[in-house]
Amino acid sequence: MTLRLTNIAKTFPDGTRALLPTELTVKTGEIVSLLGPSGCGKTTLLRIIAGLETPDFGSTIWFDNDDVTSLSVERRKVGMVFQSYALFPNMSVRANIGYGLKMQKLSKSEINARVTEVLEMCQLDEFSKRGVDALSGGQRQRVALARAIAPRPRLLLLDEPLSALDASMREALRDELAVLLRKFQITAIFVTHDQDEAMAIADRVAVMSNGRVVQSGTPEELYRNPNSSFVAGFVGNAMHLEGKSAGKLLTLEGGTQHLLSEGSGQNVYVRAEDVRIDEAGSLCGEVETVTFMGTHYRVGIKGIMPNVLTSIFSGQSAPNVGGKVRVSIKPQALMLLPEGEAQA
C-alpha cells in the first residue's frame, strides 16, 4: 500500500506547533524510518498516521486511493507496535495475537490457523500459552509485532520498538526486526531517535527536526550528502570544523586546510573516520584522550579547533596522551553546508 501525506500539520490546544506542514510518501513495501531527537514531532506524525491524533484542518492522509483522514483508528486497519508494547495483561500470548482477528469477526478455526502461522513466523510457538508477564523484553517485543501483523494491516507503524530493551539485546533484536519486517513484505514506518537503528532497519530515512522533515533519503545518501548541518551532525556525528575560510582555504587554530570549493559563508563538516593521523598532515594538535574500541582507537585531539577533533585510528599502537600529532583530511571528504541551524 502506498501512503501519501499532504500538508500534515499539528497544533496542540495550548498553541504548540508540534508538526509544521509536512509531505511524505511511502511506497508499497517500503520501510521508512522517522529519525530525530526527542520533541521533533516524529511520534506525533506517527500517531497522526495511525489515527490516534487528529491533524490540523487541511491535512490529508491517503492509503492508496482512500482518503482516511477522518477515519478513526479502529477502522484504519493499521498495525501498531507501541514503545511499551501495550500487551494485554489479562490475555495469554495467543489471545493477544488473536485479538485483532477476533475483532474482524473471523471464525475460531481461521483465527487459530492465522495465530499459529504468525507465532511460527516470529518464533514464539513455545510461549503461546504463557501470560505476557512471564516473557522477557525481547519476547514481548516479538509478541507486540506478531499482534500488530496478525490482522494483515495495510500499514505497520512502530513507535521506538527497541528503546524499552537492554542495550545488550538491542543490537541483536535490531537485526532480527529488520529481517522480520522484510519477511512480512509490508509497508512500514518506524520512529526512532537512534541513527544506527534507523540505518540498520530502514530502506529510507526521513530526518526530522523542529516539526519538519529536513531530509529524506537512503541511509547512504543521508550519510554522504547531508543537506544541512543538522543532518550531518545527527546522522553519523559529523564534526564542525570551526575556523575562518577565505577562498578555498580554511584557517584553523592548528593550521590550514584546503577546500575543494569556495568556503566563505559555508560551514565545513568532517567525520571522524576521515580525520587521519599522518606525519605529513597540514594540521597540528595535541592528543587529549585515547579510547580503545576493539577494532580501532578513538583519538581526541585538541588545539586544532576550539572543540576536540575526533579521529578514528586503526593502527596497532595509538599515539600517547599529551603527545603532538599531525593530522590530514582529504579535501574530498569535507562537507560544505550552508550556515544555519545549529548541530544537534
Partner: peptide, 23 residues
C-alpha cells in the same frame, strides 16, 4: 497504562465498548 492499552486495542479494530469490555 490504560491509555496505551486502549490505543493498542483500538489499533486492532476494537470499538470503545469492546475496549471497555475486553481490556
Amino acid at each position: 497504562d490504560l491509555k496505551t492499552l486502549e490505543e493498542g486495542a483500538a489499533s486492532l479494530g476494537a470499538s470503545p465498548w469492546q475496549r471497555f469490555r475486553d481490556i
